[in-house]
Protein backbone atom coordinates (compact mmCIF):
# COMPACT_ATOMS: atom_id res chain seq x y z
CA UNK A 1 0.00 0.00 0.00
CA UNK A 2 1.17 3.50 -0.79
CA UNK A 3 0.81 6.19 1.89
CA UNK A 4 1.02 9.90 1.48
CA UNK A 5 2.65 11.30 4.59
CA UNK A 6 2.01 14.99 4.89
CA UNK A 7 4.20 16.73 7.45
CA UNK A 8 3.83 20.18 8.87
CA UNK A 9 7.47 21.27 8.93
CA UNK A 10 9.45 24.16 10.31
CA UNK A 11 13.10 24.91 9.65
CA UNK A 12 15.31 25.76 12.60
CA UNK A 13 16.08 29.27 11.42
CA UNK A 14 12.65 30.19 10.13
CA UNK A 15 9.55 31.06 12.11
CA UNK A 16 7.16 30.05 9.36
CA UNK A 17 6.02 26.50 8.86
CA UNK A 18 5.10 24.71 5.63
CA UNK A 19 3.60 21.39 4.53
CA UNK A 20 5.61 18.81 2.69
CA UNK A 21 4.39 15.37 1.59
CA UNK A 22 6.25 12.13 1.02
CA UNK A 23 5.26 8.83 -0.53
CA UNK A 24 5.87 5.74 1.53
CA UNK A 25 5.16 2.26 0.33
CA UNK A 26 4.88 -0.89 2.45
CA UNK A 27 2.95 -4.12 2.62
CA UNK A 28 3.84 -4.79 6.24
CA UNK A 29 0.99 -4.76 8.76
CA UNK A 30 3.43 -4.03 11.56
CA UNK A 31 4.74 -0.72 10.23
CA UNK A 32 4.13 2.38 12.27
CA UNK A 33 4.47 6.11 11.71
CA UNK A 34 7.79 5.80 13.55
CA UNK A 35 9.13 3.13 11.23
CA UNK A 36 7.96 5.09 8.18
CA UNK A 37 9.79 8.21 9.40
CA UNK A 38 12.91 6.15 10.04
CA UNK A 39 12.77 4.61 6.58
CA UNK A 40 12.21 7.96 4.87
CA UNK A 41 15.22 9.42 6.68
CA UNK A 42 17.36 6.49 5.65
CA UNK A 43 16.82 7.16 1.96
CA UNK A 44 20.05 8.43 0.51
CA UNK A 45 18.26 11.29 -1.27
CA UNK A 46 14.91 12.17 0.25
CA UNK A 47 12.48 13.79 -2.14
CA UNK A 48 8.91 14.95 -1.65
CA UNK A 49 5.83 14.01 -3.68
CA UNK A 50 6.60 16.80 -6.16
CA UNK A 51 10.07 15.38 -6.71
CA UNK A 52 11.86 18.17 -4.83
CA UNK A 53 14.86 17.28 -2.72
CA UNK A 54 14.04 17.54 0.97
CA UNK A 55 16.12 17.67 4.11
CA UNK A 56 15.75 14.88 6.63
CA UNK A 57 12.65 14.93 8.82
CA UNK A 58 13.49 15.80 12.41
CA UNK A 59 11.54 13.88 15.05
CA UNK A 60 12.32 12.29 18.37
CA UNK A 61 12.15 8.70 19.52
CA UNK A 62 13.79 6.27 21.88
CA UNK A 63 12.10 3.05 23.03
CA UNK A 64 9.86 2.36 19.98
CA UNK A 65 7.61 0.49 22.38
CA UNK A 66 5.19 3.06 23.83
CA UNK A 67 7.27 3.31 26.99
CA UNK A 68 9.18 6.58 26.86
CA UNK A 69 6.96 9.29 25.38
CA UNK A 70 9.66 10.72 23.11
CA UNK A 71 7.76 10.32 19.85
CA UNK A 72 4.49 12.11 20.71
CA UNK A 73 3.06 14.17 17.85
CA UNK A 74 -0.27 15.03 16.29
CA UNK A 75 -1.32 12.30 13.87
CA UNK A 76 -4.37 13.04 11.73
CA UNK A 77 -5.49 15.55 14.31
CA UNK A 78 -5.00 13.36 17.38
CA UNK A 79 -2.04 13.55 19.80
CA UNK A 80 -0.44 10.11 19.75
CA UNK A 81 2.81 8.22 19.85
CA UNK A 82 4.37 7.65 16.44
CA UNK A 83 5.61 4.23 17.53
CA UNK A 84 2.07 3.24 18.45
CA UNK A 85 0.26 4.48 15.34
CA UNK A 86 0.16 1.67 12.80
CA UNK A 87 0.00 2.72 9.15
CA UNK A 88 -2.72 0.12 8.57
CA UNK A 89 -5.01 2.21 10.77
CA UNK A 90 -5.20 4.70 7.90
CA UNK A 91 -6.78 2.76 5.03
CA UNK A 92 -7.27 5.88 2.96
CA UNK A 93 -3.50 6.21 2.83
CA UNK A 94 -3.29 9.84 3.96
CA UNK A 95 -1.39 10.49 7.15
CA UNK A 96 -0.97 14.05 8.41
CA UNK A 97 1.74 14.69 10.96
CA UNK A 98 2.23 17.86 12.97
CA UNK A 99 4.23 18.76 16.06
CA UNK A 100 2.43 19.04 19.41
CA UNK A 101 1.07 22.57 19.28
CA UNK A 102 1.23 23.44 22.98
CA UNK A 103 5.02 23.58 23.06
CA UNK A 104 7.62 25.63 21.17
CA UNK A 105 8.63 23.86 17.98
CA UNK A 106 12.36 23.22 17.68
CA UNK A 107 12.28 21.81 14.17
CA UNK A 108 9.68 19.78 12.24
CA UNK A 109 8.14 17.35 14.72
CA UNK A 110 10.54 18.05 17.58
CA UNK A 111 9.12 20.25 20.32
CA UNK A 112 10.60 21.60 23.52
CA UNK A 113 8.60 20.09 26.37
CA UNK A 114 10.84 21.54 29.11
CA UNK A 115 7.90 23.45 30.58
CA UNK A 116 6.35 20.17 31.71
CA UNK A 117 9.40 19.36 33.79
CA UNK A 118 9.73 22.94 35.04
CA UNK A 119 6.14 22.88 36.23
CA UNK A 120 6.76 19.75 38.29
CA UNK A 121 9.68 21.52 39.90
CA UNK A 122 7.57 24.59 40.68
CA UNK A 123 5.02 22.30 42.32
CA UNK A 124 7.80 20.92 44.54
CA UNK A 125 6.87 17.39 43.62
CA UNK A 126 9.10 15.11 45.65
CA UNK A 127 8.83 13.08 48.82
CA UNK A 128 9.85 14.90 51.96
CA UNK A 129 9.72 11.80 54.15
CA UNK A 130 10.05 8.06 53.62
CA UNK A 131 7.21 6.60 51.56
CA UNK A 132 4.40 4.94 53.43
CA UNK A 133 3.40 1.93 51.35
CA UNK A 134 0.05 0.14 51.63
CA UNK A 135 -1.89 -2.07 49.21
CA UNK A 136 -3.87 0.94 48.02
CA UNK A 137 -0.82 3.19 47.72
CA UNK A 138 0.98 0.53 45.71
CA UNK A 139 -1.84 0.31 43.21
CA UNK A 140 -2.08 4.07 42.80
CA UNK A 141 1.66 4.52 42.78
CA UNK A 142 2.08 1.87 40.10
CA UNK A 143 -0.61 3.33 37.88
CA UNK A 144 0.72 6.87 38.36
CA UNK A 145 4.29 5.85 37.66
CA UNK A 146 3.23 4.47 34.30
CA UNK A 147 2.90 8.05 33.04
CA UNK A 148 5.55 8.68 30.38
CA UNK A 149 5.32 12.50 30.35
CA UNK A 150 4.65 12.52 26.62
CA UNK A 151 2.39 15.57 26.68
CA UNK A 152 -0.53 14.09 24.70
CA UNK A 153 -2.92 14.95 27.56
CA UNK A 154 -1.80 18.59 27.48
CA UNK A 155 -2.22 18.80 23.74
CA UNK A 156 -5.88 17.74 23.91
CA UNK A 157 -6.69 19.74 27.05
CA UNK A 158 -8.88 22.79 26.39
CA UNK A 159 -7.50 24.54 29.47
CA UNK A 160 -3.76 24.00 29.30
CA UNK A 161 -1.40 26.42 27.68
CA UNK A 162 2.34 26.59 28.06
CA UNK A 163 3.32 29.17 30.68
CA UNK A 164 -0.13 29.27 32.29
CA UNK A 165 -0.93 28.69 35.96
CA UNK A 166 -2.80 25.47 35.19
CA UNK A 167 -0.28 22.67 34.70
CA UNK A 168 -2.64 20.09 33.28
CA UNK A 169 -3.02 16.35 33.62
CA UNK A 170 0.65 15.50 33.26
CA UNK A 171 1.25 16.84 36.77
CA UNK A 172 -1.48 14.66 38.28
CA UNK A 173 0.18 11.22 38.15
CA UNK A 174 3.30 12.64 39.78
CA UNK A 175 1.17 14.33 42.45
CA UNK A 176 -0.89 11.20 42.96
CA UNK A 177 2.13 8.95 43.43
CA UNK A 178 3.50 11.25 46.10
CA UNK A 179 0.15 11.78 47.82
CA UNK A 180 -0.51 8.05 47.91
CA UNK A 181 2.78 7.50 49.71
CA UNK A 182 2.82 10.48 52.07
CA UNK A 183 1.17 10.90 55.45
CA UNK A 184 -1.05 13.87 56.28
CA UNK A 185 1.79 16.14 57.40
CA UNK A 186 4.04 15.36 54.47
CA UNK A 187 1.15 15.90 52.04
CA UNK A 188 0.49 19.50 53.06
CA UNK A 189 2.66 21.26 50.50
CA UNK A 190 1.73 18.83 47.72
CA UNK A 191 -1.96 19.48 48.41
CA UNK A 192 -1.44 23.22 48.32
CA UNK A 193 0.33 23.05 44.99
CA UNK A 194 -2.22 20.63 43.58
CA UNK A 195 -5.10 22.89 44.48
CA UNK A 196 -3.37 25.86 42.89
CA UNK A 197 -1.97 24.35 39.71
CA UNK A 198 -4.28 21.48 38.89
CA UNK A 199 -7.65 21.38 40.61
CA UNK A 200 -8.40 25.07 40.13
CA UNK A 201 -7.81 25.00 36.38
CA UNK A 202 -9.23 21.60 35.44
CA UNK A 203 -12.54 21.91 33.57
CA UNK A 204 -13.20 18.12 33.94
CA UNK A 205 -13.58 17.67 30.20
CA UNK A 206 -11.49 14.52 30.65
CA UNK A 207 -10.45 14.62 27.02
CA UNK A 208 -7.08 13.45 28.35
CA UNK A 209 -8.60 10.11 29.19
CA UNK A 210 -9.18 9.26 25.56
CA UNK A 211 -5.72 10.10 24.34
CA UNK A 212 -3.43 8.79 27.08
CA UNK A 213 -1.20 6.28 25.26
CA UNK A 214 -0.67 4.37 28.50
CA UNK A 215 -4.45 4.19 29.01
CA UNK A 216 -4.03 5.65 32.48
CA UNK A 217 -7.45 6.11 34.03
CA UNK A 218 -7.01 9.84 34.45
CA UNK A 219 -10.47 10.22 35.94
CA UNK A 220 -9.64 7.70 38.65
CA UNK A 221 -6.39 9.52 39.43
CA UNK A 222 -8.22 12.83 39.62
CA UNK A 223 -10.94 11.41 41.85
CA UNK A 224 -8.32 9.98 44.20
CA UNK A 225 -6.20 13.11 44.19
CA UNK A 226 -9.23 15.32 44.77
CA UNK A 227 -10.46 13.07 47.57
CA UNK A 228 -7.21 13.56 49.45
CA UNK A 229 -6.28 17.08 48.45
CA UNK A 230 -9.59 18.86 48.22
CA UNK A 231 -12.18 16.85 50.11
CA UNK A 232 -9.71 15.82 52.82
CA UNK A 233 -10.71 12.18 52.74
CA UNK A 234 -7.43 10.55 53.75
Amino acid sequence: MRYRIEIFRKDRDNEKGYCQSFWYETESEAETVASALTALNEQSALSDTDGNTARKIEWDCSCLQKKCGACAMVINGVPRLACQAKLSEFPKGLIKLAPLSKFPVVCDLVVDRSIMFENLKTMKLWLTEDAVQTDKSQQLSFESSECIQCGCCLEICPNFYSGGKFYGMSAVPVTMRLLSESDKKASKEIIKQYAKHTFAGCGKSLACRNVCPKKIDTENLLVNANAIAIWKRF
Binding site: K121, K124, L125, W126, L127, S141, S144, S145
Partner: peptide, 22 residues
Protein backbone atom coordinates in the same frame (compact mmCIF):
# COMPACT_ATOMS: atom_id res chain seq x y z
CA UNK B 1 7.08 -4.22 40.40
CA UNK B 2 5.11 -6.46 38.05
CA UNK B 3 7.03 -6.34 34.79
CA UNK B 4 7.74 -2.60 34.89
CA UNK B 5 10.42 -2.44 37.55
CA UNK B 6 12.72 -0.08 35.66
CA UNK B 7 9.94 2.41 35.02
CA UNK B 8 8.91 2.38 38.68
CA UNK B 9 12.47 2.89 39.92
CA UNK B 10 13.13 5.63 37.37
CA UNK B 11 9.98 7.49 38.39
CA UNK B 12 11.02 7.47 42.04
CA UNK B 13 14.56 8.62 41.24
CA UNK B 14 13.37 11.33 38.88
CA UNK B 15 11.18 12.70 41.67
CA UNK B 16 14.08 12.51 44.14
CA UNK B 17 16.42 14.28 41.71
CA UNK B 18 13.84 17.03 41.24
CA UNK B 19 14.28 17.95 44.89
CA UNK B 20 17.96 18.65 44.27
CA UNK B 21 17.24 20.48 41.02
CA UNK B 22 15.02 22.85 42.96
Amino acid sequence: AKSSTGKMIMTALIDETRKYEA
